[in-house]
Structure formats: structure tokens, C-alpha cells
Design a binder for these strands. Structure first.
Lengths: 190, 190
DNA sequence: GTCTATAGGAAGATAGAC
DNA sequence: GTCTATCTTCCTATAGAC
């Protein structure tokens, strides 16, 4: 083997993720990505021969794993539903920095390459999150139809509040959304 | 004066808007915009000396006028609240092609130039839409706090459902969102 | 007002030394 | 595995003819 890695895979993915989330797929130039990673462009190509698209795919895959471990397993666990919801939403609040950071799924769904390349994984992640929310809503006593609806509404509120937060520069819609999601999933007045 | 306009201002703005909505600000290259307009790049610069950013600003301004005429004036009109909501949501359904077309505000809020350039107008448009929704919710009998909350939730659902629709390629979340917004604004079970 | 032509630079991507 | 150097393509933007 040659020289040692200047940055390990986990840390590298973390920096690439941050860049994609900040500026979106198109604006994330290789120069920008390389700078974030502390590497030169050619080194990035060594790690990801497929270029930017492969980087985005890897970032998406790691985000999917994060979702599974930190959100889905919590939502579908076996504690009291209220506790599971609270824990998952707290994790999301932290992950999105209280509304100050955008969602990767939205930022990768813009552009021209997108329409075909990222749709399958994005779809899967949305579907899984909906299933997780629906599970905890059912466990909280809501019927099948109500749970399904509350879960889909929760994802809409999450994404919509992040769009508002980013568009206006005011993160407060995100906190409001988390409250609405909490009530909606637990069947309190919605 | 020289040669006649090959495309009038309204039609030109319409085509530029469509391109920005389809691919977002960064991916909307001058070549793509020129092709959509049926003009050469140099001709676009003649109409918009400030280049792409000025085009986006003009597109945003025209969208703001459209919002005022077709949505705000309907929401704040003086017919029965239920009728106003139905009319406004039908117009939105048509405008977003049932969830198949993205929202300009979201597509322009990505990228690197954005953060400073478009935020003021985007913020204004979100605020106005919220005020319009809140007005009709109040007229439907909800109190001030409920109306304000329902209005903000409506915008979140609108944006979030469009993000889901675009990310997954399935427009159905948008129709669900319109139904939720209808109920929420009129104070039916939410 | 639109066009052709082109400048000047940044983009994605590769070759090959170390 | 990382680097410097380079290639090609596409980008934004301008000059100037008609």
C-alpha cells in the first residue's frame, strides 16, 4: 500500500454530506467538495471513481443508514409511544440544527442529473420514514387510516418547515413543525 | 428602434420561470434558459444585463404578482370562506400541475448565490401567503392563534408535499396536502 | 432587438510522479 | 493514497455586425 489515508471514510462522508446539504447537488463543485474534505480533486476521484454522482450516492447511502439506526429503530422500538416520538424528534431537531440546516433529500432532488439517479433511494427513505411514523402512531392508539395519514403529514411538515426555514432564513417554522408532528402522531387533536 | 421582439416579456418570463422551476437556479444554465426562450444567449443579456441573477429576480417578481392576483386576492375576498379556500386551492392545484411541478421558492433557495440575493423576496412571499391563509381561517370562525397556526401549517404542507412529490416522482402527496389544508383552514377537526 | 463569434474562467475528469 | 499538471467541455459574459 501507498501513503496513509489523510481522512477516513466516515469523516470524509461527513464533510461531503455537509457540503451537499449546504449548497445542493449542482452548486457542490468538486473544488468545493475537495476543500471541505481537505483533499485535492484527484484524491476525491481516487476514492470515488464515478465522480460527483458517486459521492452523492454514497452520501445518500450513509444517510439511509443513519436514518435506520437513529430514527426508525427508535420509532419502531418497544418503549411507550410518547417516549419514542419524543426521542426521535429530539434527534431530528439536533440533526437539522433546529431548522438551520437543510435536508439532503430535498437538496439532492434539484438539478438535471437527479431525476433518474437519486429518485429510488430518496423514495425508499421517505417510505421508510412514513412507515416508522405510522407504526408509532398505531401503537399510540390511532387506527390504520389515521396513522397512515398522520405519518405522511409528519413528513410533509418536516420537509415543508425546512423549506420555509431555509427560504426565509428563520429557523422557527421547524420547531413549530416538530410540535405539530408530536401531537399529530400521538393523536392529540388532529 | 431595431428589430422587433421575437418574444414578448410575459411569454419570456413564463419560459424562464418554467426552466428555473424544473431544474433549479444552478442547473439553469444560460444555454438552457436561452433555448427555452427561443433566443440566443446574447439576446437574453440584452433583456437582462444583470445576467442569470437578474432573470431570477424578474421571475420572482412576476411570481409575486401572480400570487397576489390569483391567490391572495381570492383568500382575502368577501365570499364565503369555504368558497374562497376551494377556489384558491384549485388554482394552486392547477399551478403546480397536481404536484408534478416544483415550487419556484424552493428551487431558488438552493445554491450559493441564493442565501443573500433571493431571501428578501422569498420571505415576503411566504409571509403574504401566511397572512392570506390566516385571514380566511379567521373569517371561517377560528380564533387568532388557531388561524395563525393553521396558516403556517398550510404553507408547510404545501411545500413539504411538493418536496415529497418531486423526490419520489409520485405527485399524490400534493393532493393529500390540499385536502389537509382545506380542513385545517376551515377548522374541521384540526 | 437579435445574431455570430469569442473572450476568459471554472467545471468535471484523467495521467502520471511520488 | 495523494499530489501537480493538464485536458476538454461548458459556463458566464462581452464585442460588434446587421
Amino acid at each position: 500500500m501507498g501513503r496513509a489515508q489523510a481522512i477516513n471514510d466516515d469523516e470524509l462522508l461527513k464533510q461531503l454530506t455537509a457540503t451537499f446539504r449546504e449548497v445542493g447537488y449542482e452548486a457542490a463543485s468538486l473544488s468545493l467538495l475537495a476543500e471541505a474534505a481537505g483533499l485535492k480533486k484527484a484524491s476525491l476521484y481516487h476514492r470515488f471513481p464515478g465522480g460527483k454522482e458517486e459521492m452523492a450516492q454514497a452520501v445518500l447511502r450513509s444517510a439511509s443508514e443513519w436514518l435506520d439506526v437513529h430514527i426508525l429503530q427508535v420509532l419502531e422500538g418497544d418503549g411507550p409511544p410518547e417516549e419514542r416520538v419524543t426521542r426521535a424528534l429530539d434527534t431530528l431537531r439536533n440533526f437539522y440544527a433546529g431548522g438551520k440546516q437543510a435536508c439532503l433529500l430535498n437538496m439532492l432532488a434539484a438539478g438535471h442529473i437527479t431525476r433518474n439517479a437519486f429518485t429510488p433511494m430518496i423514495t425508499t427513505m421517505f417510505d421508510q420514514l412514513i412507515l416508522g411514523f405510522a407504526k408509532v402512531a398505531r401503537d399510540a392508539g390511532q387506527d390504520e387510516a389515521q396513522s397512515r395519514m398522520a405519518a405522511r403529514r409528519a413528513v410533509m411538515l418536516l420537509q415543508g418547515s425546512l423549506v420555509m426555514a431555509r427560504g426565509t432564513g428563520d429557523p422557527s417554522p421547524f420547531d413549530e413543525a416538530l410540535e405539530m408532528i408530536h401531537s399529530s402522531l400521538l393523536g392529540e387533536g388532529a
